[in-house]
Structures are given as structure tokens and as C-alpha cells.
């Protein structure tokens, strides 16, 4: 096999390692027990994505990415975790979030799903000048695992964090295939994320006020 002899260069190796780290934090979010740790993990994940953006900006000389990195630092590493943490402070209930299935089976499932996603994307003809295209496979895995996070954890914090980390996966994908994405568009995405966060926060609060819990187990009245 050819992969045996092909050692990635320093740049590619480091950036892939960062990408894999993002995936690992996603898995950690899936299995971690406390909502707070989950939010912290999200902040860490965003920080890694930010570092990745800076890294690419320096190495591949794409100055626009610096601004993206700054916005992402302010918004995703600081603001969003802070908003969610404040909510958690105010609610003071149920800091442990619940799983619908056991942690090991969830991880195995996520692994399977992630592997499928990675191999599927790997078959596609992508060429990127900013990052190894393997980053795209990894972001696909992040996206798929974030879906599991939303599906199998039944509390509003996990579900919201699942959505935010889905966005991290997409951000990483955009670093791979669309590093030169015009700034206006990129900024629009970020602005949108901010709006989404505010609304998530409002709805989480509404949910908490009505049910005085953060669990979504009770959300089963509407069906059919």
C-alpha cells in the first residue's frame, strides 16, 4: 500500500492532527457526563478550529482567514460558551445530562458513522491548496457525530452544543475547500450563528421556565 511510505509533510501532518483533535473533542462531548464540561469542550473545540484557521492563514498566506479567526475566537470560544454557562448558572438544576443509550454503544455507533462518512468523502475528487483533503473527511465525521449528540443526549444543553459543534465541523470543512471564501460571506455566516445562539438561549430559558428542567425527556406531548 502506498500510504505506508507516504509520510505527510510537517504542515500537513500538524494540520491533520489538529483536525483529528477536533473530531476527538466531538467524541468527548458525546461521552462526557456534565453539561458544563460539554460547554467547555465546545470552547476547546472552537479554539482548535481557530488555531487551525490561524495556522492556515500563516502558512498559506490567506490574510482574510485572520479576520475569520478573530471573529471565531470572540464568538465561538468566548461568547457562546459564556452565554450557555450563564444559563446553566441561572438554572442551578440537573447538571448531569442523560443518555438515551449507554456510552460505549454510543461511541461505537459514532465510530461506525464517522468511519462511513470519512471513507465516503475520501472517495470524492477534492483538491485543496489550503489543507489536506483528509480534513474534509474528518469534518464530515464531526458533522455526523454531532448529529448523534443531538439525537442521543436528551437535554437542551447537549442538543444546543450539538448544533454549535455541527457548525464547527462545517467551519472546518470550509477551511479545507473554501479557505478563500469571501469575507462578506464568511461574516454573514458568523452573524447568523450569533443570531442562532441568542435564539437558542431564549428558547432554552423558555424551556426551563416551563418545565423547570433542562431535560427534553418530557417533550413528547406532540406526536402523530
Amino acid at each position: 500500500m502506498n500510504i505506508l511510505s507516504s509520510v505527510p509533510s510537517e504542515y500537513l501532518g500538524l494540520s491533520s492532527a489538529l483536525a483529528v483533535l477536533v473530531l476527538l473533542t466531538e467524541f468527548a462531548m458525546l461521552r462526557v457526563q456534565f453539561s458544563r464540561s460539554q460547554v467547555k469542550l465546545y470552547a476547546i473545540q472552537s479554539a482548535i478550529v481557530t488555531v487551525l484557521a490561524v495556522f492556515i492563514a500563516v502558512e498559506r498566506d490567506i490574510p482574510g482567514l485572520f479576520i475569520v479567526a478573530i471573529i471565531s475566537l470572540i464568538l465561538k470560544v468566548i461568547a457562546i460558551p459564556k452565554i450557555v454557562m450563564r444559563l446553566l448558572d441561572q438554572t442551578k438544576v440537573e447538571l448531569v445530562s442523560s443518555h438515551r443509550i449507554s456510552v460505549p454503544s454510543m461511541i461505537l455507533l459514532a465510530l461506525l458513522l464517522g468511519a462511513v462518512g470519512m471513507f465516503v468523502i475520501d472517495r470524492l475528487p477534492f483538491h485543496s491548496h489550503s489543507l489536506p483533503t483528509s480534513g474534509l473527511s474528518v469534518s464530515m465525521a464531526v458533522i455526523l457525530v454531532s448529529f448523534l449528540l443531538v439525537i442521543f443526549r436528551s437535554d437542551v444543553v447537549s442538543q444546543a452544543v450539538g448544533f454549535f459543534s455541527l457548525e464547527n465541523g462545517v467551519s472546518m470543512a470550509s477551511l479545507v475547500v473554501a479557505a478563500g471564501l469571501p469575507l462578506v460571506v464568511e461574516t454573514a455566516f458568523f452573524f447568523d450563528l450569533l443570531v442562532a445562539v441568542v435564539v437558542f438561549g431564549v428558547l432554552m430559558r423558555v424551556h426551563h421556565q416551563r418545565t423547570s428542567t433542562l431535560s427534553t425527556e418530557g417533550l413528547n406531548r406532540l406526536r402523530g
Binding site: I3, V7, P8, L12, L111, D122
Partner: peptide, 13 residues
């Protein structure tokens, strides 16, 4: 460990 093997094939080495 599985991710390690996956990374070798599709995760950038």
C-alpha cells in the same frame, strides 16, 4: 485506536 487506523487511511496520514 480505531481513529488512528482511520487517520492513516483517510485522516491525513
Amino acid at each position: 485506536s480505531v481513529l488512528a487506523v482511520l487517520a492513516l487511511f483517510v485522516g491525513g496520514g
